[in-house]
Simulated scan of single mutants.
Amino acid sequence: MSSGASYRAVLALPRARTLFAAAIAARLCYGLLGIPLLLAVRSGTGSYALAGTTVGIAGLATALLGPLRARLVDRRPAALRPLAAGYAALLALLATACAGHWPVPLVVAVALLAGCCPPPVGPLMRTVWGRLAAGEAQRQSALSLDTAAESTVFALGPVLGGVLVAAVSAPVVLGGCAVLVVLGFGLLAAALPTPEAAVAAPTGRRTPLRAKGFLPLLGLTAAIAGALALAEVGLLAGRGTVVTGVVTTLFSVGGVLGGLLYGRRTVAVPLTRRPVLLAGTAALCYALPAAVPTVAAAGAGLLLAGACTDVLLIAAYQLVDHLAPEGSRTEAGAWLTTAYNLGAAAGTALAGVLVDRLGTAAVLPAAVLGLLAAVGGSLLRSARPGVGSPAAAQR
């Protein structure tokens, strides 16, 4: 490795500081939302079971419809403002419905509708960084800085959300999230480059799912998210909430540190091979606490796994610029987010079954096997003639 582009140079790009601050403000709503949303819907329905089911289905809608919302913003950048305004209005309406104890079916319907509408921020910002950066090294630094900021917001957001709910009430905090959407996305829309510079006109209606090498990348993204979910549930069942909280915090710390280090280095490994290498390394990280079942091994394993995970995601975002058709890169980034969320959901569900039937000792080996299976599938697919485009991704 050698030194790459500096973060100071990234923030010196045109509008970069304003974009960076606006993206943090826009992401803050999503970081805060989880606890207030669940508790507000519980207050409005009177049932934790119904609230959990409603929020879970809304989250599934958010993940599955994310690429469609990103495609809309890809092709019509001006749609970001009305999309954000509609989402903020639905959050405010949901807060009012929960505080006013509206009929339960209406509360559920508004929550589900809100889950269909969150505007994209991460995929959009990564597309913009890719277009602002001068060369691959600066793009790597920009994406690393953006991912570190996102990871920090999502690590601290639930803590802040819980404190605010304890200080006021869940519906009030939910209303505050609606205000954050208006402010954050308003700042972001104003800071974006002109539509012609930010998002080029699409060539036809080609989907990034048909791009060579993109589906294996989605598989690796889903597998690394599923491995984390398996590890979290296994630790929670076997070690309790305190140990799990500390260890998963180490995962976040490792992710931020690994991403920032990666952004400052020039890596000799070809870009197309980095996700496979990182997924395989993450499998070894999860194998450490599986082989040595101690808290120290779990902490070390998840610290290193966090670094592998964030760097894999950054490399995946870099590859999007080479694999996805012009004019669909925000949509491609949203597909990566969807794959990650679906992988996490599948990992959580599988972990529950394994704990019930085989015990906690089976969970971490399942995480290792899942990652190795994804690596093997990716290698087999890339070995087939006509699959992947390594030359393009190394340009």
Rank of each mutant, 00 (worst) to 15 (best):
M1F: 03
S3W: 11
P14K: 04
R17W: 03
F20G: 06
A25I: 09
A25Q: 14
L28P: 09
C29R: 08
L32Q: 09
L32M: 13
S47D: 10
A51V: 11
T53Y: 05
I57L: 15
G59C: 13
G59Y: 14
A61M: 15
A63C: 09
G66L: 14
R71T: 08
L72Y: 10
D74K: 01
P77L: 15
A78Q: 15
A89Q: 02
A89D: 00
L91A: 03
A92G: 08
L93P: 03
A95P: 07
T96K: 05
A97C: 15
A97F: 15
W102T: 14
V107E: 05
A111E: 08
G115N: 12
C116W: 04
C117P: 03
P118E: 06
P119M: 07
G122W: 07
R131M: 07
A134D: 14
E136I: 00
R139K: 13
Q140K: 15
L145N: 00
A148W: 01
T152C: 12
V153T: 08
F154H: 01
L156R: 05
V159G: 11
L160A: 15
G161E: 11
L164M: 13
A167E: 13
G175A: 03
L180C: 15
V182P: 03
G184D: 12
G186P: 01
L188W: 05
A189Q: 10
A190P: 04
A191W: 10
L192C: 01
L192A: 05
P193V: 06
E196I: 09
A198L: 13
A198D: 13
A198Y: 06
G204L: 14
R205P: 00
R206M: 07
T207D: 14
P216E: 00
L217P: 01
L217V: 08
T221L: 10
A223N: 11
I224E: 09
G234L: 06
G240K: 03
T241Q: 08
V243F: 05
V247K: 02
T249N: 10
F251G: 00
G254F: 08
G255H: 04
G255E: 01
V256S: 11
L257S: 02
G263E: 00
R273W: 12
L278W: 04
T281V: 13
Y286A: 11
L288D: 06
P289H: 08
P293C: 14
V295E: 12
A296T: 09
G306D: 04
T309H: 06
L319V: 06
E326K: 10
E326F: 01
S328M: 14
R329A: 09
R329E: 13
G333H: 01
T337P: 05
T337L: 14
G352M: 07
L354M: 09
R357H: 14
G359W: 11
V363E: 12
L371V: 10
L372Y: 02
L372G: 08
L380N: 07
S389E: 14
P390W: 11
A391R: 09
A391Q: 06
A391E: 15
Q394I: 02
R395Q: 13
